[in-house]
Nucleic acid binder design. Structure first.
Length: 462
RNA sequence: GUAGGUAUAGCUCAGUUGGUUAGAGCACCAGAUUGUGGUUCUGGGGGUCGCCGGUUCGAACCCGGUUACUUACCCCA
């Protein structure tokens, strides 16, 4: 049988894992630096927890898990199962008789579920980070996987926009350390709601935002066409034009919005929130990323109600979204806990990896397959056991060390092993060295070697 | 779901208008070198040309189907 793995999933070898862990470590360190505490949730959730939170399109992308042992059902139940199965064949339909669990689609909804279930034990505002894989039943493409990691940081139980500011500061610091040039776009769903209200099309808000969101991709004409197809009236589209044409500085954009939204309460609230962030950006003094108000930014997820974020690499040709996030005023409400507002962001590690690979941003220290400092090579059984003793002394001294575990005819084999793993030093122990209580230490890069005692060996490797 | 592209050695790929025994580079194994890798030289192993069928004296090559992978659209980290 020819081995394979499901489409859109990947194996990660030691070389890739070095680089992935480098990213994870930077993010994790910063999460902790900003006061977030780690949690984990199960890979699978009850499917009812997930459905209806991600929009119509999102629901289709949820990975469903078939109930186990359905063949053991009683006969009358089987009739019902067949009916449910047939219905599933006809239309998009969820039957709990067939499927009661699903793989998590993101980390935010499971987090909201967690908060509601653990409300009694949490101190608010509750700040958590979570680094786990999520799954989407999508068709894989470049930069799009069916299993990928998200690194989320969320604050729940605080309405303050200071949380947004701090998130921006954390985004800045993280991308600075990863050395990725980044453009962080933000917007506010209240602006979008205000626009829909002014146009008398509040029920079409999703259609409008999705269409406007595509501006940089399909251009103004494309947006106008799509709006028409979605049933937006011509006069409304005409009204929208100044917004579609919106450009210039952040302040210029706000000025246009002020006029456009002057009669919408929710719109004005959105402008107020945007202004707060713009006015205080200097307080957190972002050093690295570029922050830009983009009123065409919509984001697909249904649960956002306030600020929304999206970041892309600001260099290279491959620039997928590598971070997303936003504020959700009542995500816990669906699970029975009202009045908790939260805001959070999600780093997409797999795409960050792809971008860093394209821009060649990994430092040389992580661009290798092994962290071993020295390999001890042996000439036979007695020497091997001598090495086993030596290597444990090296480890006690804090040096990453390994011993070649087999006795082989050719010592070259052991050097080859060290070379392939890019181990910088090889210690050779033969009869002479054993008698002298020394090690022949070879520097693999320069090719030079020197007979040293243990003290000198540790010094050379420190 | 819609539309393209690709499928030949472990990997990346050549393969002429259809012609006899299907190649290269890398990787692998052995030797040159019995206490030394990476460089060099020599030799070697490795193929159901994705699968099924058709056309033909003859198919890796042409035709039909099928599967897998891949890119774009929709949507998204």
């Amino acid at each position: 049988m020819k081995p394979s793995i499901p489409r859109g999933t990947r194996d990660f070898g030691p070389a890739e894992m070095q680089k992935r862990q480098y990213i994870f470590n930077i993010l994790k360190t910063n999460f902790q630096l900003f006061g977030y505490a780690p949690i984990e949730t199960p890979s699978m959730e009850n499917i009812t927890t997930l459905t209806g939170k991600y929009g119509e399109e999102g629901d289709q992308l949820i990975f469903k898990i078939l109930n186990s042992r359905i063949h053991e059902s009683k006969d009358d139940k089987k009739e019902e199962l067949k009916k449910e199965f047939n219905t599933s064949l006809e239309k998009s339909y969820n039957s709990e008789l067939l499927t009661e669990k699903a793989l998590r689609y993101d980390l935010t909804v499971p987090f909201a579920r967690y908060v509601v279930m653990n409300n009694h034990a949490l101190t608010y505002p509750f700040k958590r980070y979570q680094i786990q894989p999520v799954w989407r039943a999508d068709k894989p493409q470049k930069g799009r996987y069916r299993e990928f990691y998200q690194c989320d940081a969320d604050v729940i139980g605080s309405n303050s926009l200071v949380n947004e500011l701090e998130l921006i500061a954390m985004i800045d610091k993280s991308f600075a350390e990863l050395n990725i040039p980044v453009l962080l776009k933000f917007n506010n769903r209240k602006i979008l709601s205000g626009i829909a209200e002014i146009l008398n099309a509040s029920d079409k808000i999703i259609d409008i935002t999705v269409a406007i969101d595509k501006l940089d991709k399909i251009g103004k004409e494309g947006v106008v066409k799509e709006l028409g197809e979605k049933g937006i009236s011509e006069s409304a589209i005409k009204q929208l034009e100044p917004l579609i044409d919106l450009s210039g500085s952040n302040a210029d954009k706000v000025a246009v919005l002020n006029t456009f939204l002057s009669t919408s309460d929710i719109g004005k609230k959105g402008i107020e929130e945007i202004n707060f962030l713009l006015n205080h950006l200097k307080t957190i003094s972002t050093q690295h990323i570029k922050v830009e108000l983009d009123i065409t930014l919509a984001r697909g997820l249904n649960y956002y109600t306030g600020t929304i974020f999206e970041a892309k690499a600001n260099a290279g040709t491959f620039t997928p979204s590598i971070l997303g996030g936003g504020r959700y005023d009542d995500l816990t409400g669906i699970f029975g806990l009202k009045g908790l507002s939260g805001v959070g962001i999600s780093f997409g590690v797999d795409r960050i990896y792809d971008v860093m690979e394209e821009l060649d941003l990994f430092p040389p220290s992580v661009n290798k397959v092994s962290t071993t400092k020295i390999l001890l090579a042996n000439f036979g059984e007695a020497e091997l056991m001598h090495c086993v003793g030596l290597v444990s002394k090296l480890r006690a001294a804090g040096i990453n060390a390994e011993v070649y575990p087999d006795v082989v005819k050719k010592i070259a084999k052991q050097f080859e092993y060290a070379d392939k793993k890019q181990i910088p030093f090889v210690g050779v122990v033969g009869g002479n060295e054993m008698a002298n209580n020394t090690i022949m230490l070879k520097n693999m890069a320069s090719g030079t070697q020197e007979e040293v005692d243990f003290t000198k060996l540790v010094e050379a490797l420190k």
